[in-house]
Design a protein around this nucleic acid. Structure first.
Lengths: 175, 175
DNA sequence: TATTGTTATACTCTATAACTATA
DNA sequence: TATAGTTATAGAGTATAACAATA
């Protein structure tokens, strides 16, 4: 990685936006770019931890989802919908996880078309260890104050709902 | 894309975190996951616009950076540092942009090692059109209130500085 | 005819290592 | 010896299209 910058590149971009007269868009541009960059930093921290377990964030999320299920199994399409990723991404993730022995493919008992993904005992063990380390290394102190976390959860929850990410009754994620 | 969810998957994950006794990490997990997801939504909106210009977000950012330079040119390493991406990513982006006629590679006048990237007239035209459309379609109304934008800029600016993203004197990006 | 999932293909960005050329 | 950049290679996620099997 390169040397540290001596000035905030996003603040600098915002200044340029203002100079070009794009006042209405400057704040939005800065916030959107900041979200992009923050995601990058967080993802890099997370994947640094998950690497120890041979997992990527996408595969970790799939394992976590399965581990929270009563039966430990889910149809591929359900996993795709819940994780909000493309079906081929699930196929790919399951391929890798299956090769690692963390999940297993099974036929559906009544619908011959659907494939069930089931987490294995080893998968449960792995996701538990990974979560423990992730919680300690990132989630317990992600770099925001408790107050900021509440604001983020409220604000982004509202944003995601507005973007059609989910149809919710009225529950507010924050607090 | 799959059918819309009837419940917020992040709120659901948070509930599971609480149930497992991971109270200290639940809020951080939810906020971090929300940032990830929000980034995905925003990026998809942005790339939907940039597609009309044959650009990706990474290439758009490079073009924008060059267009804000006095001379319209920058050494590869400088671009890498400013955009906070890997040198090979810059090489790749410049390859594509050069093939599209939007930038041009030039030798450095005094240092034979460095390559300068210069934006072409067509590149300037393209980045201006793209910015106009991006501002209208996304940045002017990104889905957050002006107040929320300020909070995001302040909060994420502080976060990025804390993460060592840049060494700033004291300037606060928000407001 | 519609749905589920896989395969093939392709295109991102990212990262490491090996290499050339220059300072 | 250190720096700048390219190349080769590999891996990740994402996406479209074609296809098989089943409902």
């Amino acid at each position: 990685m390169p040397e540290p910058l001596t000035t905030d590149p996003i603040a600098e971009a915002r200044r340029q936006w203002e100079e070009h007269g794009w006042h209405d868009a400057a704040g939005g541009m800065a916030a959107v770019t900041a979200i992009m960059r923050t995601q990058q930093i967080l993802l890099s921290r997370i994947e640094g931890v998950l690497k120890h377990f041979g997992l990527t964030f996408a595969r970790y999320e799939l394992l976590t989802l399965l581990s929270f299920t009563r039966s430990g199994a889910l149809p591929m399409a359900k996993a795709s919908a819940r994780l909000q990723v493309h079906p081929t991404s699930v196929t790919n993730a399951v391929d890798r996880l299956e090769r690692a022995g963390l999940v297993r493919r099974m036929g559906h008992p009544t619908d011959g078309r659907t494939t069930l993904v089931e987490i294995t005992a080893e998968g449960r063990q792995t996701v538990l260890s990974a979560t423990t380390e992730l919680n300690a290394a990132v989630f317990t102190d992600p770099g925001f104050t408790p107050n900021e976390l509440d604001e983020l959860n409220t604000m982004l929850g509202r944003y995601r709902r507005g973007a059609g990410d989910f149809i919710d009754h009225e529950a507010t994620p924050g607090a």
